Computed example of a mutant assay.
Amino acid sequence: MFHPVEAVLFDLDGTLIDSAPDLGAAADKMRTDRGMASLPLSEYRPMAGAGARGMIGIAFGLTPQDEGYEALKEEFFVNYEACMTERTYAFDGVAELIAALDRAGLKWGVVTNKSERFTVPLTRRMPLFGTAQTIVSGDTTPHAKPHPAPLLEAARQLDIDPGRCVYVGDDERDIVAGRAAGMPTVAAAYGYLGATADTDVWKADATISTPGALLNLLRMP
């Protein structure tokens, strides 16, 4: 159990919400628009945490270094903007977790590498985020995770010492960023880990297999 905590910060995609269906749909539309066969969500899901890079990699086998990638990325972004909350939902247990944090008077917020272009409209459309007291996007500060700057910015906005914030995420970069910011870290093993991820090597302070398990780690008022 962690020492008294004043705030809990979360990664977004793969930690609080399952956005893989909409991310995959945005990329798959690019394939079908070109007369290519549709791919199942199961192929897109493991790379959902990598955003456009992951989705375009699955859909077309391209990397950011390949010719034509930038045009495809913008097309993907336009597709995603049109559908970003059609199939996206909170993971089972997340709503109950947030309600428990609210009842306990703990502040909470989001620190994501998703750009404000998507983070702002998505969180405004989903009632889950109505009580979030900070939302920091990948371009809110000059650096994205694994740099600690976004996490430190969230703590600054909350006016809470970083050491009294817990950071929860489903990617190694989340744990790296949290540790660099001086925050206790929790690996969300139910998220978009991919086939080769080993949370043991991330050196998080704790690992949870369901969102609700976080409550067992917090000393609630």
Results as ranks from 00 to 15, higher is better:
R156N: 11
A144H: 12
A154W: 07
F118R: 04
G130V: 11
G138S: 08
D161L: 12
S115V: 11
T131R: 05
T140V: 10
I175E: 01
M126Q: 13
Y192H: 02
F129V: 10
T185R: 02
G163Y: 07
L151N: 03
V120M: 12
S137T: 10
A181H: 01
P121L: 09
L158P: 07
Q157N: 14
K114Y: 04
K145E: 02
P127T: 14
P127S: 12
I160K: 08
W202G: 12
K145A: 05
L151M: 12
T131H: 07
A154M: 12
R173A: 09
P148S: 11
D171E: 15
A187S: 13
T131P: 08
E153Y: 14
W202C: 11
E153I: 06
R179F: 04
R173V: 14
T131G: 09
K145R: 10
L152Y: 06
G163V: 15
R125C: 11
F129L: 13
T123Q: 04
I135Y: 03
D200I: 14
A197S: 09
T134L: 11
R124T: 15
K145T: 03
L151F: 10
V168E: 00
D171R: 12
R117K: 08
G194A: 02
P162N: 05
A204C: 15
D161S: 14
L122N: 02
G169F: 06
T196P: 00
R173M: 13
V120K: 14
T207K: 04
Y167F: 15
I135P: 01
A187W: 02
R125T: 13
G182Y: 03
R179A: 12
N113K: 07
V186N: 01
D139L: 06
L122Y: 01
P146G: 14
T207F: 05
D161I: 14
T123S: 10
K203Q: 12
V166P: 00
R117Q: 02
P148T: 08
N113Y: 06
R117A: 05
A144C: 14
D159Y: 07
F129K: 08
R156F: 11
G178A: 08
A149L: 15
A195F: 05
P142Q: 05
L193V: 02
D139E: 01
R179E: 03
A149D: 15
F118P: 00
R124Y: 13
T141M: 08
L122M: 10
A154T: 06
P184T: 03
K145D: 01
